[in-house]
């Protein structure tokens, strides 16, 4: 489904702040595969997602989605097939618009934006039905402005918006990191449910090693812009956080710098 071939990205090239974020990285994802990504600060996890979604232009390499070369297509065009949920709950919704209006924009993804009414009666019924699946009671608050929702509610809504039209690829960038643990768990469960039911090809960055092992069908570890470990299917079974940390220290030659990854 997704094929990333030898991509590189360097920030501030030629200056003293030069930073190699992605170093000749390749990654292939099959249909319905759910990959969790872990790695220390500055490992290039977010840069990888931003290059795939077109926020950053890559310096070298190629990106293919479903056989199409999307290496240089603009962000908004890729967004028709790639959905994203960001870490900041404020980034995924329009705060001054109602829940149903936000969903309507997401539901119209990839379709022409004409002068037809923004929401039809049938749409509202569908939105309520989908919102009920979140089990947050949002289905009774469709006319409320999103700005009034809590971070967790907004993130759950963003997840629904990202998948209401099935994307070819779903990118989750630490989408539960800003939430309190209870809500974070709920949002992760929802993520599992939606991804499994819809069989969406997904890449999820997480700072939580346990979550990385518990979720998804495959786990990759990044360090200095490269993938240093790739645990697929059976390899993943029985792996513990301790083992993962040991592997990381051995393969990267450094100590894990990220306390957040060890806790929780």
């Amino acid at each position: 489904m997704l094929k990333v071939e030898n991509i590189s990205k360097t920030f501030y090239k030629g200056s003293i702040n030069e930073k190699i974020a992605l170093n000749n990285l390749s990654l292939t994802l099959g249909e319905g595969e759910f990959v969790t990504v872990i790695g220390g600060n500055g490992a290039g996890k977010s840069t990888l997602l931003n290059c795939i979604s077109g926020v950053y232009e890559i310096d070298a390499g190629r990106i293919f989605l479903d056989g199409t070369d999307i290496s240089y297509s603009p962000e908004h065009k890729r967004s028709k097939y790639i959905s994203r949920v960001f870490q900041d709950p404020l980034m995924g919704t329009a705060f001054d618009m109602t829940i149903e209006e936000n969903l309507a924009i997401a539901y119209a993804k990839g379709k022409p934006k004409g002068l037809r009414p923004g929401i039809s009666k049938a749409d509202i019924a569908l939105f309520r039905e989908k919102l009920a699946l979140l089990e947050l009671g949002l289905e009774d608050r469709v006319k409320e402005k999103v700005g009034r929702l809590s971070g967790g509610e907004r993130q759950a809504l963003t997840l629904l918006m990202a998948t209401i039209v099935k994307p070819k690829l779903l990118l989750l960038d630490e989408h539960t990191a800003a939430l309190d643990p209870v809500i974070a768990k709920r949002v992760l469960q929802l993520t599992d449910k939606i991804v499994e039911e819809e069989k969406i090809c997904t890449i999820m960055i997480t700072h939580n090693m346990k979550a990385a092992l518990d979720h998804g069908t495959r786990t990759i570890m990044m360090h200095e812009g490269k993938i240093i470990m790739d645990l697929d299917g059976k390899d993943k079974e029985g792996v513990t956080v301790e083992w993962l940390i040991e592997q990381f220290n051995r393969k990267s030659g450094t100590e894990l710098d990220n306390d957040r990854m060890l806790l929780g």
């Binding site: 959905s83 993804k109 004409g114």
Partner: peptide, 23 residues
């Protein structure tokens, strides 16, 4: 209140979201 109008309003609210939703 049209589909186009919705996206227009969302642009002022959150440009990043609008691009992430393919517009």
């Amino acid at each position: 209140k049209t589909k186009l109008g919705f996206v227009l309003r969302a642009t002022g609210d959150n440009e990043k979201m609008v691009r992430a939703l393919g517009v």
